[in-house]
Computed example of a mutant assay.
Amino acid sequence: MRFPERGLYAITQPENKTMAQVLSEVEAALKGGAVVVQYRDKNPIDAVALASCLLTACHAYQVPLLINDSVELALTVGADGVHLGKDDGELADARHRLGPAAIIGVSCYNDIQKARAAANHGADYVAFGRFFPSDSKPLALPADTATLTRAKQQLNLPIVAIGGILPENGGQLIAAGADLLAVIGGIFDHEPEVSARAYQALFNP
């Protein structure tokens, strides 16, 4: 499955929720138009079971499921790829283990040089952020919208923006160069289907 060129990138919010709740919320976001889902879970109870269910739900909508941090979990459940942060291992190792068809994304924070290096090593997309205050990553360093613009000019792969993005502020990131908006609380703190539609509308003004 290919990584989408534009749209809403939904990231799970499993804290203090049952597997059924997480699955129901993700299915609602998919119904609302999310074009890619990342399973992010810092304290999983049964990551294999939940990731497997999410994969089935995503594929019913022809949407790829990526796993945050864990190449091992991606391999175990047959996910479409992984997202790698700064402490999650090397891109080349992930590519070797997951194969040429896997989607691999890399967090680049506010670092255009890191993004260029990731692109040169075969990343499928790069992510920058945080752009606004974020409950999910309150200590993350801020990123500059000018970084999105430079990345759009210099890189030939999709650019993801993350961090405190709401329907009210996402449009300025798209205008600056973001191809996808990665969102956790903005979707799952509310009614996910309605929220997802509000984000998707930013891509079709």
Rank of each mutant, 00 (worst) to 15 (best):
D80N: 14
A146L: 10
T56Y: 01
Y61M: 05
L73K: 03
A79W: 01
N110K: 08
G89S: 12
T76C: 13
A60P: 00
Y61V: 03
T149A: 15
L157H: 07
H121M: 12
Y61E: 06
Y61T: 00
L73S: 03
A57L: 08
Q38H: 12
P100T: 13
P44G: 11
G163W: 01
R95F: 09
G32R: 11
F131N: 05
Y39D: 02
T56K: 15
L50D: 02
G85L: 04
H96L: 15
L55Q: 13
V77H: 01
A161W: 02
I165K: 03
A102K: 05
P44C: 08
R97D: 06
I104C: 14
V36H: 08
A60E: 13
A47M: 03
P133N: 11
T147Y: 02
V37T: 10
V82P: 00
S107Y: 04
L157A: 08
A143H: 08
A92L: 14
Y109W: 13
A102V: 04
Q62S: 15
N110C: 08
Q38K: 09
K31F: 11
L91E: 11
L65R: 05
E90F: 11
P138W: 02
A60C: 10
P138L: 08
V82Q: 04
S70Q: 14
G99L: 06
V77G: 01
A51V: 07
A34N: 12
C108D: 10
L91F: 11
G85D: 11
G170A: 00
D111L: 12
Q153S: 11
E72Y: 04
